[in-house]
Design a protein around this nucleic acid. Structure first.
Lengths: 149, 149
DNA sequence: TTCAAAATGACAATATATTGTCAATATGAG
DNA sequence: CTCATATTGACAATATATTGTCATTTTGAA
């Protein structure tokens, strides 16, 4: 099998494993991996972000991120704030409960992360991250500019 | 951010990119990345496989693979053959049309694969595949033996 | 300023995948 | 052989994600 196929099949399995492990670990907090990703993106940055902005950052469709964001608002973990500079584009802002949940999720995740890190060579992991970055760049170009088809 | 988080976020995006590129490229053949993965697993091995066996090989739930397999049968790309050694467990066998489709899909994919490979250092890709393998092993253990909950 | 192009939110259709459950069949330890 | 355990296929509920469409708002170039 060609090495890109091998790599992509690994990505598919890793994707499922990370989501599965995350969902199980975050279950007590009432959120999932997908919700944590959106909540985390909004919680960690300095500036307040709109949903389409978050979607671009995490490389996801605008609509998928919007759905997750709406769910987070429904759960009381975030709110839409009026954007004085852009009437139509609201800002997605975590509530205090959202920030608290994100902090607890991070603590839970760090235990898992540390456990994994203790089992692998750090420099190899850095190398993997570097090649992943290159591949993301290449694949984004192949995928074409997402024109919000 | 910890390196495992960084890595997992890359995996999420790579997952979406590979699926998106695959779906677009395979569209003329009437199949998707998910269907190609199941069809491919059944087409490339020597022995005929059951659906649960394929699911384990690709690290997916039995039910998800069953759904895809049923769809492939509905499309005329595969058939369920009676298993003389196991009355209840049918064998998932590609039809000639399924084998032809898989061959065409492979040709399409190889062009994409070669294009990607030409843009990265081969030894780095091999390293990434190696660390992915290690991580899959570690994550499988964390995820616990899938007892078909 | 004007107006075409882009961005945004909302909604729908479809695909993919997990988890859970159930009944039927198969397997293996005793 | 017998019976507890595991496997299998089927079905349902839910979550996640893409693609497509539409009306509205915003932006930016002529």
């Amino acid at each position: 099998m060609d090495k890109i196929s091998e790599f992509s099949l690994q990505v598919f399995e890793l994707n499922g494993l990370f989501i599965g492990i995350g969902d199980a670990a975050l279950k007590p907090l009432g959120i999932t991996s997908a919700k944590w990703q959106v909540l985390g993106t909004a919680s960690m940055g300095k500036a307040q972000l709109s949903v389409p902005h978050i979607a671009k950052l995490i490389g996801q469709s605008r609509q998928a991120t919007q759905k997750t964001a709406n769910d987070l608002v429904r759960l009381g973990l975030a709110e839409f704030h009026e954007n004085e500079f852009h009437k139509k584009s609201k800002l997605f802002v975590p509530t205090q409960k959202g920030l608290d949940t994100h902090k607890l999720a991070l603590e839970i995740w760090m235990k898992i992360s540390n456990s994994i890190i203790s089992q692998i060579a750090p420099d190899e992991l850095l190398r993997a991250i570097k090649i992943n970055d290159e591949l993301i760049g290449i694949l984004r170009k192949i995928n074409g500019g997402n024109h919000d088809k």
